[in-house]
């Protein structure tokens, strides 16, 4: 008699896997990567390659020799962390900075908590913030390395729109004069290609393209990015209406800095975001609010990394108290 398999139901599986999801995230990051490589040339390639290889290597080493378990680097999650961290560094960052950042991201932020699925904070962001506080000069050096693809284009800009505005305001200038002095800070330029900023922030359009791919493949749901962007627009809009000479306008806030990169690829990280739709909305609103507050009133020109990390720490609470809409009224019994 033939020996059959027996198991509890269900007997079929939807064919999704962690590896496929991570692969989709990498694919979604490709447009931004290509734009960065076009813009920053070898330094962008170098950062991404060092980041991905270090992250995978560190995870493999820790799983194999410290945790003594079968390494699971083939699920590509470490590679995603490496690429994301690379996209979060200034293009002029040296390769060893990337190396240190990757070791912190995987070694400290991910594996000490138990590896994939157990970390509280987004590993790539922990790596970035670690570097930002440890190497503040290098991490805010926005000078642009030469690229083979764009010889002859003026590469003199050395600051992000956000830091230009922050510095100008702190000198007591009004927004009008600051923006008048920098004609290159136009929305069109920000949407397609902006010169100052970290590797992955170059083109808002490329990031949005990645977002659309993720939505089509149903890897992420729109709730978190959309609420972040709406909250930023709303909160900054209120301030802007109160005093347009001191506070930047909503569109400027959405298109500048790491808001798009952060809200599309970092805040939507499965492990460190809430499990329910309602929770996701709360999470997004929190990130948007904190980002704007840091930008307007904080010491740093950019705040989304901190905002996401702060909200990461609230996620367990959100998961505990925000429950999905249960089917059927509960009848008190017993």
């Amino acid at each position: 008699m033939r020996k059959l398999l027996v198991s509890p139901s269900p007997h079929i599986h939807g064919n999704e896997s962690t590896r496929k999801i991570m692969r989709d995230v990498l694919i979604a990051l490709t447009p931004s990567l290509l734009v960065s490589i076009y813009f920053f040339g070898f330094s962008a390639i170098q950062l991404v390659v060092v980041g991905a290889l270090t992250c995978v290597g560190v995870e493999y080493f820790i799983q194999k020799y410290l945790m003594k378990i079968e390494p699971t680097v083939d699920d590509l999650s470490a590679a995603v962390t490496g690429v994301l961290l690379a996209l979060n560094l200034p293009p002029s960052a040296p390769w060893w900075l990337m190396l240190i950042g990757s070791i912190v991201a995987i070694g400290v932020a991910k594996m000490t908590f138990g590896g994939l699925g157990h970390n509280i904070f987004n590993p790539a962001l922990v790596g970035r913030v670690f570097l930002l506080v440890s190497f503040p000069v290098m991490m805010t050096d926005w000078s642009i390395p030469t690229s083979w693809f764009r010889e002859g284009i003026d590469a003199a800009t050395g600051a992000t729109p956000l830091s230009i505005v922050k510095e100008g305001l702190s000198r007591g200038e009004t927004l009008e004069t600051i923006l008048a002095a920098h004609p290159d800070l136009s929305y069109i330029e920000m949407l397609f290609i902006k010169t100052g900023g970290s590797v992955g922030e170059v083109s808002a359009l490329a990031l949005i393209l990645g977002f659309i791919y993720l939505l089509v493949r149903k890897v992420v749901r729109p709730h978190i990015p959309v609420t972040i962007l709406l909250t930023i627009a709303l909160v900054s809009g209120i301030f802007w209406m109160i005093d347009p000479t001191q506070y930047t306008d909503p569109l400027f806030n959405i298109l500048t800095g790491g808001v798009l990169l952060g809200s599309i690829f970092m805040a939507t990280d499965y492990v460190t975001s809430p499990m329910t739709t309602k929770g996701m909305v709360i999470f997004g609103v929190g990130i948007g609010l904190i980002t704007v507050l840091i930008r307007y009133f904080g010491a740093y020109p950019e705040g989304i990394s901190f905002a996401i990390l702060i909200m990461n720490s609230v996620v367990p609470l959100i998961n505990k108290y925000i429950k999905p809409n249960r089917f059927g009224k509960e009848v008190k019994h017993g």
Binding site: E16, S17, T18, I21, T72, D75, S77, G115, L116, G117, H118, R221, Y270, V271, S273, P274, M275, T276, T277, P324
Partner: peptide, 11 residues
């Protein structure tokens, strides 16, 4: 594998 907290099961 490890739960990656993708929330698909909740959805």
């Amino acid at each position: 594998g490890e739960c990656i907290r993708c929330a698909k099961c909740v959805q």
